[in-house]
């Protein structure tokens, strides 16, 4: 079974607390990669907005050049990342219906992860180390 090739919208089974079980971890690498890619895309988008806003405040020639190159780089990176995500099926800009289906699956997954009990019991680190000041 090639789990890395599984597309994110194929994951329909509810999340299980026993995520170390191979069966429950089905499609996990694709899920992680697509989520990280989406987070990366949001960062790049913010970088473009932030640097464009900053550029409007620049008066010094050298500062303007620096921020301009940052903006240029961000735009190029955005193009590369968008292409990659479209190729991998993590983003569907030309098919709104499919994008909404993907959003629906992502929402369900996010809610399922949120309801998982990831940390069992007390997570306080007090007492684990010598902490004389507490």
């Amino acid at each position: 079974m090639d789990i890395t090739k599984k597309s994110i919208n194929q994951i329909k089974r509810p999340m299980n607390n026993d995520y170390l079980e191979i069966e429950n971890a089905d499609g996990m690498p694709g899920l992680v990669d697509s989520t990280i890619a989406l987070d990366f895309l949001l960062s790049v988008k913010s970088a473009i907005r932030n640097s464009a806003m900053a550029l409007t405040e620049m008066a010094d020639q050298e500062a303007r050049k620096a921020v301009h190159s940052l903006l240029d780089n961000s735009i190029n990176l955005h193009a590369e990342l968008t292409d990659l995500m479209i190729k991998k099926g993590w983003l569907h800009p030309y098919d709104v219906n499919q994008q909404f289906q993907l959003d629906k699956v992502s929402t369900q997954t996010a809610l399922q992860i949120a309801s998982l009990q990831l940390f069992k019991g007390d997570t306080s680190r007090l007492g684990t180390f010598a902490t004389p000041n507490y």
């Binding site: 690498p29 992680v32 990280i36 890619a37 990366f40 790049v44 990176l77 990342l81 990659l84 991998k88």
Partner: peptide, 14 residues
Amino acid sequence: LVKDEELKALLNQE
């Protein structure tokens, strides 16, 4: 954390 090689390369480039 990423498994995908292309995405990893892009992240390292960034």
